[in-house]
């Protein structure tokens, strides 16, 4: 019993010696000696674990704040403002600062979902199947609705049967290919994005 009590007393005294608050009260500096503890001695910066660091741009508003993305085994572990950027000089607003939370969100859907006509549920489907099915539907709709000339002979070579919406959250290269394929290749004219909203 006594042994246990002694051991507890020793632990308590070690704990109090290691705990920052009593040491600060006894005059040690909160930003120097008192900031160290046996725990802190063994801590390493989390970012040390990153095996890849790259530059990214905040995916929200058009201010274009630059970010540094730290990744480990292909997964992001930390995102912060890039201090070199003349736009944000390392700062981010609550949205930009939360980017990691978006990438790792539990609400993220990592698989293809398919809802058949009149069905009341989503089904998981292979990506390749979905791509083939979408390509077939696009061709079918386009072939049904393409107009080569108006009744008076004016050439239009377009379809009003397919529409595309979105682009302002995508890369420039992605926008370029959407306009090129859907507009230049398939004759879709209603290609629109958030610029009007």
């Amino acid at each position: 019993m006594n042994q246990i009590r002694r051991r507890l007393a020793r632990k308590a005294s070690e704990f109090f010696k290691d705990w920052s608050v009593p040491r600060q009260l006894s005059g040690q500096s909160a930003v120097a000696e008192a900031a160290r503890s046996s725990l802190s001695e063994h801590q390493r910066p989390r970012l040390e674990e990153a095996d890849r660091i790259g530059t990214s741009i905040c995916p929200f508003c058009a201010v274009g704040c630059a970010q540094l993305v730290y990744a480990k085994h292909g997964k992001p572990i930390h995102i912060e403002g890039d201090p070199r950027s003349p736009v944000n000089q390392g700062t981010l607003c609550p949205k930009g600062a939360g980017t990691l939370g978006m990438m790792l969100s539990e609400l993220r859907v990592p698989e293809v979902l398919y809802r058949a006509p009149h069905s009341s549920a989503w089904e998981k489907r292979p990506l390749d199947w979905a791509m083939a099915r979408i390509a077939a539907l696009v061709k079918q709709t386009r072939d049904e609705t393409i107009v080569d000339r108006l009744a008076d002979g004016t050439p239009v070579r377009h379809t009003l049967g397919i529409a595309s919406l979105g682009g302002a959250t995508l890369d420039n290269e992605e926008n370029y290919l959407i306009k090129k394929l859907l507009g230049g290749g398939l004759g879709v004219v209603s290609i629109e994005n958030q610029a009007r909203i």
Partner: peptide
């Protein structure tokens, strides 16, 4: 392709309601 009018998002929404648009991509 050539335009024949305003094919922006607002009239396209109505064209969907009216059954003119049959398929849509949303990115």
């Amino acid at each position: 392709p050539k335009l024949t009018g305003d094919h922006s998002q607002l009239p396209t929404t109505l064209a969907m309601v009216d059954g003119v648009v049959k398929g849509q991509f949303v990115f």
